[in-house]
Design a protein around this nucleic acid. Structure first.
Lengths: 335, 335
DNA sequence: TTGAAAGCGCTAACAT
DNA sequence: ATGTTAGCGCTTTCAA
């Protein structure tokens, strides 16, 4: 357990060069004679010298670290985003600081402050809804910020998303095309911007364009859980005039809805058609398999991080509000 | 976008005290006259001074940052562990650096090196199998390391786990108790220490103690996926002498097994009983619901991090190889 | 209770 | 191509 720290100075001394030269070698600066480089490398090897990133960060004012704020890493939706973020970060030699916010403004604020304190070079933020305070904090940031799968309605902060409204519209249209007149929307919390302002609006738009009325009885604000889908399924189907199709806000809800309908002896997709929004691997892990709007979670994360690297490199950026394509994957819960 | 960095020196000047005093105030050192503290605090507030953690890290040789190496954050099993780790880290004011290893030794080694470079105060490592090289690298570490849900058979590295062998033994015993004579084991990859040395051995032990033969035909090395469960289910059930019960290495496999059996018109649990190992929320999201060994993932993560904080504080530690309790949750896939 | 000053290990002008 | 030298912003003796 060798606990003596070998510094750049030790290497310089042993190699009979200056610290600057060692620094150049370590950082791949071309202005070093090959022979010198070789000599220095040998000493680095021998002494097992490893650069101290903290010292480097202090001197260079770059930490090659980015902060990632995520509502909940144990949520499959965000975990998938995080994976995309991390992969690209690694590719560009950035390290990630990851913190869960539990979607609490106070905690988000604290995390942002903390990350500034740690001198991150940039931040990727995920949140169901950006409060004014958070939005302000982010805009004041001295380092670039990118929102991943998170909407800033003012469009002042760079972000990567899909067109949720259009995607929801298409999902409901799919149901409409199959002849349904009573289509329910079981949503995650409306405290989420995407749920309230996009999925719900897309749903309404599709119905309206089809000349159908908006029936509040068919719009349900649930939480994001399987159990919630289960309960709401049973409740919806016990209505005097039950829906014949349901648009689910996410996969867990969708699966709950399926099982709930099955429990009540409805047949899917014959009696009830269901389409969800997410397309995590869960969609395939249920019988009948769940039709779903494909949200490219990994890609949203990856593209966000890529965009952030561009900002950190001060590259010129054409579009700061990126909209990725989506599609609908029809499986067995729709005809 | 105020980009002027306020330093401890600025605060000192404005407050007419020395940097040392400001440092004391910031770090809650009691040796400061209340009046002075108040004065300094006011200036900190006014200038919006935020300590630079990088400079602090360089000076104090502590970064209050811990490295977390995880095979894959988008895997629900590890995501749950990570959540436990992160929560406790936050509680003790540590920040987390998170990296995915994809279970590749070369990448694991690189990540370990990189984390040392970033001067982490400790490391939480997760891995399906600790290669000798990794084990060596970890034991040489100048900072404490704790393994979370990861077995070091030499017991030289502190770790937090459950008794996987005993848990597997009990799972198979449950099946045995229900009268089964032909019980299959569909496992995740045997490259994983836990699968090969504990779940498999527990399975064998239970059969052997019951006076039953070990039939290689009934031991299947699958991968960890749902699809794999699906395929292997069909294959097992088409055997001349098919099993009447299956022990699944994890929930995804278990669900695949259930659906595969259902597809072949077997009834569960009447024709086939299935019990899995993990008990993620997936176990409840399938019909029939999956009976499973409860692995306290969140707790394993949380306890690992707690243990690490003790090491980092140089507290005396009674037990470095922690074994958490497990239990079996019987649902509808067993009688 | 407070201050002065020496680093922590490295980068980045600036010289040579 | 290489060396010299000032910091980066903070903590931490050591004195007072």
């Amino acid at each position: 357990m060798s606990d003596v720290t070998v510094t750049i100075y030790d290497v310089a001394r042993e190699a009979n060069v200056s610290m600057a030269t060692v620094s150049r070698v370590v950082n791949g600066n071309p202005n070093v004679k090959p022979a010198t480089r070789k000599k220095v490398m040998a000493v680095i090897e021998r002494l097992e010298y490893r650069p101290n990133a903290v010292a480097r960060g202090l001197a260079s004012k770059k930490t090659t670290t980015v902060g990632v704020i995520i509502p909940d890493i144990s949520n499959i939706f965000y975990a998938e985003l995080a994976r995309g973020i991390e992969d690209i970060a690694t590719m560009y030699n950035y390290t990630i600081i990851l913190s869960n916010s539990d979607q609490r403004e106070e905690k988000e604020l604290k995390l942002i402050e903390n990350m500034y304190g740690k001198q991150v070079d940039g931040i990727v933020m995920m949140s169901d809804s950006l409060t004014p305070a958070i939005s302000t904090a982010l805009q004041r940031s001295s380092v670039p910020v990118v929102l991943a799968g998170t909407v800033d309605e003012t469009k002042k902060i760079p972000s990567v998303n899909i067109d949720y409204l259009q995607a929801a519209f298409e999902a409901v249209q799919t149901l409409l095309t199959n002849g349904h007149k009573r289509i329910a929307f079981v949503s995650g919390p409306f405290s989420s911007t995407i749920n309230r302002h996009f999925k719900l609006e897309g749903y309404k738009k599709a119905l309206t364009e089809a000349g159908l009325p908006i029936d509040d009885e068919l719009i349900i604000e649930a939480d994001d859980s399987y159990e919630s889908g289960l309960e709401n399924s049973k409740q919806l189907l016990s209505l005097t005039e039950p829906p014949t199709a349901i648009f689910a806000g996410n996969d867990e809800l969708g699966i709950g809805l399926i099982h709930g309908a099955l429990d009540e002896n409805f047949s899917i997709p014959n009696d009830i058609e269901i389409i969800s929004f997410e397309n995590s691997k869960l969609a395939r892990m249920v019988r009948p398999q769940l039709s779903s709007v494909v949200v490219p979670l990994y890609d949203i994360g990856a593209v966000s991080m890529r965009l952030l690297t561009k900002f950190m490199n001060k590259e010129t950026i054409d579009e700061t509000t990126v909209v990725l394509p989506h599609r609908i994957e029809e499986r067995q819960s729709t005809k």
